[in-house]
């Protein structure tokens, strides 16, 4: 009985397991492996093993770009959370009819191609674009300052792109949150802000963690956005990986950077998993 059920579980989860194994785990491991292979002059992978790539990566001037990748991603995550928290809260509190409309508005941008939306930002921020024109007209900036090709523009478009991924998990958690807890907190003497901080935020903790992960990790690996609206001073690690792959045609070097990025993403993920596994008691439902 139990054995047959076990077998049934394997049949059900098997396909997705195989899918992930073939298309995610194996390629990721291949990237790690290629890091220790030499490059050949024709852009391929040579024979034998070498630490040359690691040596070059550590002696290369990656400090600034890693730091920039990290802070742009961190600030983008912080901004997304700051915007998504009130949005998710108000969508969850809205009447049922409004709720579906608001959710639709959050999702609508996905109906347009990602690339086209990024290009649209380029049009908006372009020196001839109306955002720039309007700001100059209002004397909020002078005509020589560029809105494009800087870290701030990368940040802006990152926040724009990733915001729905923060709003949706926060909304999902807030929608399940028992708002009588907020009344209880107010009743026990807490002001509005304190009730929010002490009761609402801990109550949607899982949603918050999901939102941070869903924004921070794609931000770390972003490549298209800094490539299109960023400039030489706002490159991120993703751009470097692309450059090593397509321009320098040095696959081991690109693999080394990608492996480093993968490790950087895995570390916080594992930490979150560990923390959630360690304190299961406080995460259960209310009743």
């Amino acid at each position: 009985m139990s054995a047959s059920r076990h077998r049934a579980e394997w049949w059900i989860t098997g396909p997705s397991f195989i899918w992930l194994l073939v298309l995610f785990v194996v390629p990721t491991l291949m990237i790690f492996v290629i890091t220790f292979r030499p490059s050949d002059p024709w852009g391929g992978i040579g024979d034998g093993w070498t630490l040359e790539t690691l040596r070059r990566i550590f002696s290369g001037h990656y400090g600034a770009i890693i730091w920039r990748t990290f802070w742009i991603s961190a600030v983008a995550t912080a901004l997304c959370m700051a915007l998504a928290l009130p949005s998710g809260y108000f969508i969850a509190r809205a009447s049922l009819r409004w709720r579906s409309t608001l959710l639709l508005l959050v999702i609508i941008p996905f109906w347009t191609s990602f690339l086209i939306r990024i290009f649209a930002w380029k049009v908006l921020l372009h020196p001839d674009g109306y955002v720039k024109q309007a700001l100059v007209f209002l004397r909020l900036m002078d005509a020589d300052t560029s809105l494009l090709y800087r870290s701030e523009s990368v940040l802006l478009v990152l926040v724009y792109t990733l915001l729905p991924f923060a709003i949706l998990p926060i909304y999902a958690a807030a929608e399940k949150f028992d708002f009588s807890l907020m009344e209880a907190a107010r009743d026990l003497g807490a002001g509005k802000i304190r009730a929010w901080l002490r009761v609402f935020l801990p109550g949607i903790q899982r949603g918050l963690v999901t939102a941070v992960v869903m924004v921070f990790i794609p931000a770390l690996g972003s490549y298209v956005i800094p490539d299109i609206v960023g400039g030489p001073t706002s490159e991120m690690i993703g751009n470097k990986i692309a450059q090593r792959t397509f321009v320098d045609r040095n696959l081991p070097h690109a693999s080394g950077l990608a492996a480093g990025l993968t490790l950087a993403v895995l570390a916080p993920m594992l930490m979150v998993l560990y923390m959630q596994a360690r304190r299961p008691a406080s995460k259960q439902g209310a009743r």
Binding site: D178, L181, A184, G191, Q205, Q284, R287
Partner: peptide, 19 residues
């Protein structure tokens, strides 16, 4: 506002803070 009233409530579902 509720937090400035010298009254306290026992809610029907108790509304204990789960965390």
């Amino acid at each position: 506002p509720p937090n400035r009233r010298k009254v306290n409530t026992i809610f029907q579902n108790y509304a204990l803070f789960p965390h």
